[in-house]
Design a binder for these strands. Structure first.
Length: 294
DNA sequence: TACACAATAT
DNA sequence: TATATTGTGT
């Protein structure tokens, strides 16, 4: 109850920060399983690294409990709502595996981002002071620090993009609106416009309205099926065969955050879209924010 | 000002 | 190769 109140009233700053922090945490599926070694045994032995002792789920739980207890003990300065937030967060995490199951047939408004794809991983830098007007002349002083990293369109991010484009009436699916509805921190209109431009070309190819053959970018675009609403727009003689899934309309309103980068999808897109139902092929690694100024 | 689209740059 | 930027026209 307290949580709802907070969301509606947009409570105090601390609560917001806590919420942001919570939303930024990796989902269960993003975490490396306890049973999985971080590095292959051969590599470990090559560098004389001895394996950590195996820890069971019970060990981890015990450690969590003790951590929580110590936090509670010294939390006299912490606000009650924050503590409550922490507690409920822990309950959420432990109780609910957050797995939506790969059925893919129904659209779940509560778990739009479920199916193991908490789309939290964006790649740019958190600082979004934009309009770095150093177009031609940044060579003089050390203004190269302003270079903004390129956005990487992860399958998760693209999925959200597609959901939004689908949700909008086709005539409203313009960069600015898409950007706003995607609700991704740091995402710019230009990012979206550029992606949208490519995506439209892809749709054209899909609809057979283009002479051009497949392009490499189809791999990313194929990671999220094109919703029906997008695949038939345009006078089209040859309808592609109906596909296995359709999304309902509905929008995730959970803001995406920076902090993780989804790696290794360039070399693993051999198979089809179903392989993206989870992220077992990719790894989510902390994005280095360390280079805030260079 | 936002948009689409093509061409070009990085 | 993927994404950003620029140029042109609406």
């Amino acid at each position: 109850m307290e949580k709802e109140v907070r969301m509606i009233t947009c409570g105090d700053e601390d609560d917001e920060r806590v919420s942001e922090w919570e939303a930024g945490l990796p989902s269960l599926n993003d975490l490396t399983p306890l049973s999985q070694a971080l590095i292959p045994p051969e590599l470990a032995s090559a560098f004389s690294i001895t394996a950590e002792p195996f820890r069971s789920m019970g060990d981890v739980n015990r450690a969590s409990q003790s951590t929580l207890l110590s936090i509670r003990r010294q939390n006299s300065g912490v606000s009650a709502s924050n503590m409550k937030s922490l507690n409920s967060f822990m309950e959420d995490r432990s109780g609910d595996p957050l797995i939506l199951e790969g059925g893919d047939q129904e659209f779940d408004h509560e778990h739009v981002l479920g199916d193991g794809d908490d789309p939290r991983e964006l790649t740019q830098e958190g600082s979004e002071k934009r309009k770095l007007e150093n177009v031609g002349e940044e060579a003089d002083s050390g203004s190269q620090a302003l270079k903004k990293p390129r956005l990487v369109w992860t399958p998760q991010l693209h999925k959200r993009f597609v959901e939004v484009v689908h949700h909008l009436d086709i005539k409203n699916a313009v960069p600015k609106t898409i950007m706003q509805l995607m609700n991704v921190e740091g995402l710019t209109r230009e990012n979206v416009a550029s992606h949208l431009q490519k995506y439209r070309l892809y749709l054209k190819r899909m609809q057979g309205l283009s002479n051009e053959g497949p392009s490499a970018s189809d791999q990313l675009f194929a990671s999220t099926p094109v919703p029906q609403s997008l695949r038939d727009s345009g006078a089209n003689g040859n309808m592609p065969p109906p596909q296995l899934m359709q999304y309902g309309a509905g929008l995730p309103m959970i803001p995406m955050q920076y902090g993780f980068e989804f790696h290794a999808y360039n070399n693993m897109m051999r198979e089809q879209q179903r392989d993206w139902s989870g992220n077992k092929y990719g790894s989510v690694v902390p994005f280095s924010h360390g280079s805030s100024d260079k």
